[in-house]
């Protein structure tokens, strides 16, 4: 499972300390998914409920202006990072405008 080099006792930090904060970012949990959430940017109201609940976190706020087909303007968008999304579906359940599609992953 581990991608890290198996260091010897001399090189390893004493007592199993981990010196690099948040380095689990190098562990991609996206392959846990069987279904994936897909945010429909035109339907999304930017309510950020999905961003609040995602336990990974695998939903990011992207600071880029977006204009929907119906002409609504937003300063940012919300996107799923599939490197980490485990496909729990909590965001889908929380999305009131039903702006997240739930699509089976191809195997």
């Amino acid at each position: 499972m581990t991608q890290e080099k198996l260091l010897g006792w001399k090189e390893l930090p004493l007592g199993g300390a981990i010196l690099e904060p948040g380095n689990s970012e190098r562990r991609y949990t996206g392959d846990w998914r069987t279904f994936k959430p897909v945010i429909l940017q035109d339907k999304c109201t930017r309510c950020l409920r999905c961003w609040i609940v995602c336990p990974e976190p695998a939903i990011y706020i992207i600071d880029e202006p977006y204009t929907t087909k119906s002409g609504r303007q937003f300063k940012f968008s919300v996107e799923v990072n599939y490197d980490y999304c485990k496909g729990c579906g909590m965001c889908v359940e929380e999305c009131e405008p039903k702006a997240i599609d739930w699509i089976e992953e191809e195997k």
Binding site: L6, W9, G15, A17, I18
Partner: peptide
């Protein structure tokens, strides 16, 4: 830093050897 992490069989022994 993180102290007191969980060490799997491929890591634990080295810490004991330290």
């Amino acid at each position: 830093i993180t102290m007191g992490a969980m060490a799997s069989p491929e890591w634990f022994y080295e810490f004991k050897y330290q």
